[in-house]
Design a protein around this nucleic acid. Sequence first.
DNA 1: TTTTTCTATGAAAACGTTTTCATTTTTTCT
DNA 2: AGAAAAAATGAAAACGTTTTCATAGAAAAA
Lengths: 330, 330
Amino acid sequence: MASMNEVAKRAGVSIATVSRVLNNSDSVNEATRLKILKAIKELKYQPSRVAKRLRSKSVSSNLLGVLIPDIQNPFYVDVLRGIEDVAYRNNYAIIMCNYGQDEKKEILYLDILQSEAIDGLIAAPVNENDQRLKNIIKGGLPVVCVDRGLAGIDVDIVWVNNEEGAYSAVSHLVKSGYKRIAYISGLPSIPSSRMRENGYRRALENAGLMDSGLIKYGNSSYASGVELCAELLDMPNPPDAIFTGNNLITLGALETIHKRKKQIPNDVAIVGFDDMFWASSLNPPLTAVRQPAYEIGKRAGELLIQRITDPQRPCIQMTLNAELMIRSSC
Amino acid sequence: MASMNEVAKRAGVSIATVSRVLNNSDSVNEATRLKILKAIKELKYQPSRVAKRLRSKSVSSNLLGVLIPDIQNPFYVDVLRGIEDVAYRNNYAIIMCNYGQDEKKEILYLDILQSEAIDGLIAAPVNENDQRLKNIIKGGLPVVCVDRGLAGIDVDIVWVNNEEGAYSAVSHLVKSGYKRIAYISGLPSIPSSRMRENGYRRALENAGLMDSGLIKYGNSSYASGVELCAELLDMPNPPDAIFTGNNLITLGALETIHKRKKQIPNDVAIVGFDDMFWASSLNPPLTAVRQPAYEIGKRAGELLIQRITDPQRPCIQMTLNAELMIRSSC
DNA sequence: TTTTTCTATGAAAACGTTTTCATTTTTTCT
DNA sequence: AGAAAAAATGAAAACGTTTTCATAGAAAAA
């Protein structure tokens, strides 16, 4: 790879001038500009983003970090797509960090990201007390949270109204006549799990149907959906409907229900948090709370780039709408 | 962030010595080693991966590129997971590049990756003649291909036997008595699309059932599955079974079939290339050719790290097994 | 014409490492 | 004891940029 030095030599100028035309930061004579451009083309010169990043904290080095708990969850894949679209449009590359809801791994990734001198970070933190991330934010790195907030610190965030989304889903079950409505929760340490539980509780308490014995807490995984759904179905008095706390839990629960040859919604109804684009091809077509995942990612990306260019901008909490997609699983 | 200089000062040594204990590359007195370690701890010093990368081409700077055509395709998500697992275990960070099967975007990402001075690259190239990628390989960057090969150049690759996988799937349809078996292909410029078509043809020719009018070519997307399946169903003499070229096409085709209230497999059977972990919860449980996607990623990651440490190692073509998962969609 | 202001450019420092080379001190060998 | 070898360390260059500072010449103002 040709370096700036070689370009400078070939054009018969100093690297300073080359840098100037590259960033057209300063006045340079048109003739020399052309010479330099020519040399650049001839040498197929590509500036080193690494050197640029090392040299100047001030100027953007065009690297973003994305820290997510579970790439296997289609929700985060869509968020990532949204981020990637805006990143690419702005010539940012993305370091993707999938920490698997493992706090140790999250910390290590945060260290790596700092060490890589990223310009900004989009993160769904392991929980709302994530001290390491808070410190990083205090340290001045532009950060936007997605899906999960951070307690006691001002930070940009893009998410949906989880409580409201859960409330509408469970209310819909209530209206449909279900009486024993269970909730398979994700990790309670994750704020969204608790917000969704709150919505679930509110709906059931309004209807006088609340029964804490019908709440199962898991670790947000597919496997947890499989197992906890089995536990529910094994109860002496099993639920007649299940509200699942996320995508993967939903698919796990479906797996169990089908394995047991139960009919949906006759034997047991199900509505999930998180829609999937193939939800209408599931058996049966799944009723689900749709989060605008792609848009969450896109908005987060936009906010981040804004913050990078203007670190003083006041923080924004952007709450998008969650929408109940009614199909035939309840 | 503390730099090596500050550590050196606090420990009362030169940066050279600090570097030496960090990489324990050279003999250093135990007492000074301890002093330095203490200073590092006190300052919470983290070496800059950027500076490291800039300085030494020779030593690994622990950054990998992953270039994939479509992050929305669950197959690539699993491949990515596999890569990420081994990358993380080896302290590599990953720059994720999702080029959306867009050649321009792929080239731009390749430029960026070079400019970021990555240590190695795992790529599913846009097609087998990808000149830019070939040049990069010739330039000496360690590269491993996944899922898609490269013509006329020796390169590590991990994939499955697409021809064989397709053959077994279509043979199964034949054995089940279907006579008019269609194929919805992905982009023909992608080698795997053609390999799968070859397997499809071989199975049908063996059975004397080949009819080129039953092949539809699309762009590998969900939307293409939706549309081309509709075209097939609209034929005066529609197929009684459909073999779909990938994950997304399968889901798109299912969507169309359901929208038209056709019964699977009575009205039309379907078997897809690419399994999904929720395939048994689809309507009906989907028969599909399973690629060991996670393992493909994992193996590719391992091969890449091997190649980074030993660039001379002869190239390996690793062909994993594709397995037909028989469920009830045919 | 003389002074002042621009315009155009280069030299050199800085970013944070690794690595080579040189030097001093210590150890080991005759 | 003297020579040779080994151990421990530092100075400085290098990686490829950006950016500050200085300066020469040209244009504009006096």
